[in-house]
Nucleic acid binder design. Sequence first.
RNA 1: GCUGACGUAGCUCAAUUGGCAGAGCACCUGAUUUGUAAUCAGGCGGUUGCGAGUUCGAUUCUCGCCGUCAGCUCCA
Length: 653
Amino acid sequence: MTAVPESELVLVLPDGATRSVAPGTLPADVVRSIGERLLQAAVAVSVEGTVQDLMTPLRRGGAFRVLTERDPEGLSVLRHSAAHVLATAVRRLRPDAKIGFGPSIDDGFYYDFEVATPFTPDDLERFEAEMRKVAAEKLDFVRAEVAMPEARQRFADDPLKLERLDDFTDPNEIISTYTDGPFIDLCKGPHVPHTGRLKHFKLLHTAGAYWRGDEKRQMLQRIYGTAWFKKEELDQYLFRIEEAKKRDHRKLGRELDLMMFHPFSPGAAFWTERGTTLYNTLVDFVRERQRRDFAEIKTPLLYNKGLWETSGHWGKYRENMFLVLDAETGEHDISLKPMNCPSHYLMYLAKRHSYRELPMRYVTFDVLHRNELTGALSGLTRVRQFAQDDCHVFLREDQIASEVQFLMRFILDYYSAFGLTATLKFATRPETRIGDDAMWDRAEGALKAALEATGQSYALKPGDGAFYGPKIDFDVTDSLGRAWQLGTIQLDYAAPERFDLQYVGEDNADHRPVVIHRAVSGSFERFIAILIEHFAGAFPTWLAPEQVRVLPISEEQAPVAEAVVTRMLAAGIRAHLDARSETLKYRVAEGARTKIPYMCVIGRREAEADQVAVNTRGAGEGQRPAPVSVDEFISRVRAEIAARRLTPGAGLG
RNA sequence: GCUGACGUAGCUCAAUUGGCAGAGCACCUGAUUUGUAAUCAGGCGGUUGCGAGUUCGAUUCUCGCCGUCAGCUCCA
């Protein structure tokens, strides 16, 4: 090894070789020294794990990796550049547009513009066509580092950029601009070498977005797009969007006759007979799991505002509560409950409790109302009326670890019953919080210890906890790979104070319990939406509103078929008869479309032998159903339901 | 709440520049009694989301309201 002057940067290549270069050297030059062809393929480089582009001077040494189209880190660089290409195109066609921010995001990018008249779908097409021109021109992305006065001068005509420049308070911070052709933007990068690298992209839609995410500021016009290195990746992405649309619970919910909505009650579902069966089956499932260790209670739906003043909700969240006029006082000082917590505290307060009773777990499935903004409503995932599997645990501080472990096991087991897996997030003390540091140390320590005892991996979300305590969030991933935040375990030290909750300890003195808020499904409404999309409407037999449909081939078998249905109902199977005067073909097609797990056909042969010919969902068209004795079929389906198997298969036996 | 788009039969969708609102499926009736992914025929079904305005005439143009969707903001 030759001695390297201290001022030199040492770059360690993946194969262990080193290069030493002067600070300020461009990565492009380093890559060229490795190979001209590598330079052609390079998208950006990674220095000590930080992605930077080829035209940003090197300021530090360390592990040096060249990123090509094969490296996923390169994708966000491409997308960010795509945003600049979009802005370049927009400025060509709409020179008056002021430019906001244009970052890369999951699956794509966006750019915000301030324009006098909003964009139309036609504009979007013209912008995309113009982007293709900009890409074809292969304009180099040129980086420049400028001093503040110069930067102000360059962006003098763009108030959005000038405001952005105000954020540069640290005089040592580098202000950089990127130029591609005539377009210049204040931007720290990184970017691909030139616009020609952008090949496979599509503009998706426009939307309004507040400047700097502040609803008090003006609304900008945001354009969303997606970009990929390979055409197949773009096609796959667009295909995935289409598939997701087919599974949309709002569409399937109507097609499968599960629920509906009506303008007279926005944000509240009407559950059909089938949907109600599904809903109740789900609630029964939770009930069964909670039978031993939880106490289900019901509390009132309406409360005087005094309760919300005590809980602290009246001041801050009143506008999200449905207030009811009290005819006697003439005031709106009654409200529908938006959550169950305070009512559980009142139940707890009604008696003196011994340390021996703890942990005590109250659970309630009551209807809750929250007056969500109209623009926030969306199908079953964001509603005004819903129910939670809402539990509050009252416990001693020394029980936190074991309780958290218990609840976590409960939640994860619950998800796995649906074939859903969850990732865990550990959220710690936020900026604004109550309680002293010692309390937070204890709470976070206990939560963390319990988390780690489970052996589950988790991500840390520092500062994302509730204001009253740390929490564990459960993000569930569905069959399309989408993540949904469902379950939560939250430690609460504030509520026991506000409500003056107590228990009598071993020492015969009063002590303050801790409260844990726990939800598993989040809300049943939202959970059902996720289940519909996760299963694409093809529910496991135990959840299916209609589990078996019995089809007599002709009128002759109708009485036998009806008797078979009766036997199935008696065995606890949700069976229906379809003896309509339609062809078997027609009835089978309809049953398949409705995603019934089993269709039992009864012809002359089956009727004589007390058998059914079973069509199993998922076996596909043209399946050759094997005859099974009615009793055998019933016992197999019962076993499948009892085991809550995810896919029907009893008939294939 | 904000920005934009949209709202035609139960559902999915048509309807030249403003000129008699239509199809498929579903539903009803009849025929058919069917051996595995939509049998045939006939019929019912509409104050074109609601309310104003412009016009000889409005599904079509304008305004307001309601709702839905894509986002933004919010989600105790």
